[in-house]
Computed example of a mutant assay.
Amino acid sequence: MGNRMLFVCHANECRSPVMAGTMIAALEAAVRQDDWRVSSAGTDSRGGSLCPVAVGVLSDTMDPQLLADFQDHFVSTPIAQRTLERADLIITASREERSAIALRVPAARPRTFTLREAVSLGAGDGESAVDLAEYADILHERRGLTGAASHRRLLALRKSNDPNDIPDVHHAALRAHRAGLQEVREAAHALASGILAAIGE
């Protein structure tokens, strides 16, 4: 069956692929990729290719061959009902995507978190989990018990005052685009580290 993890953003061209690629790289480094299923999707995907800026950001995280395989097999994908129903943990870029998923599949709400939210909730007391589904349960139980995520903010880009949102930087200037995706990569790496530390073999 495997641990099923889904990353979601608006178009599935920048933020969610960077999250997914970072997680895949972490699993590869930990030699634990065989029992995991990592995918990404968009709430308004148009079937586009992987953003070149995202490729550049992932090149600092993924082995060249792993990145080449990831890029070759990537196509922007819309979220599917079955995928939402089966995912053990769903990570979104912002509250907008999190809300869209909750409206579409209400039962997925306890398993759906923004990236920043999941990192903040996972920074606990080192509690362990047998699998990703149990890890999602732990995060859900901690909702409302921790403060908002504290992190470097891209004030010029942020449309929301909620620090758990990571803004869509796809149409921003190149420097801001790259900085925004580097922020995504850093948060995704923190998430991956927390998950792999909690779920032992």
Rank of each mutant, 00 (worst) to 15 (best):
A20V: 01
C51H: 05
D63M: 09
S16K: 08
D63I: 04
R37I: 08
D69R: 15
D69L: 09
D34L: 12
S40I: 02
L50N: 08
Q33K: 11
V57A: 05
V31Y: 10
A25S: 15
R32Y: 00
G47V: 06
G42D: 06
S39E: 14
P17S: 12
A68N: 13
G56Q: 11
M23K: 02
S16R: 08
V31W: 07
S16W: 01
S49I: 07
V55I: 15
A26P: 02
G21F: 01
V31N: 14
L67S: 11
R32D: 03
S49P: 10
D35Y: 05
L27G: 06
D60P: 00
V31M: 09
V57N: 02
E28P: 02
M19H: 05
A30Y: 04
V31K: 15
S45M: 04
S49Y: 06
Q33R: 13
A29D: 12
S16Q: 08
A30E: 10
G48H: 13
P52G: 04
D44C: 07
D69Q: 13
D34H: 14
P17I: 00
Q65E: 15
Q33H: 11
P64R: 07
R46L: 10
M19A: 09
S16A: 08
S49Q: 13
V31S: 14
L66A: 15
T22R: 01
P64A: 05
C51Q: 08
T61K: 13
V31C: 09
A29M: 11
F70L: 08
S39Q: 13
S49G: 12
L67K: 13
D34C: 05
S45H: 04
S59N: 08
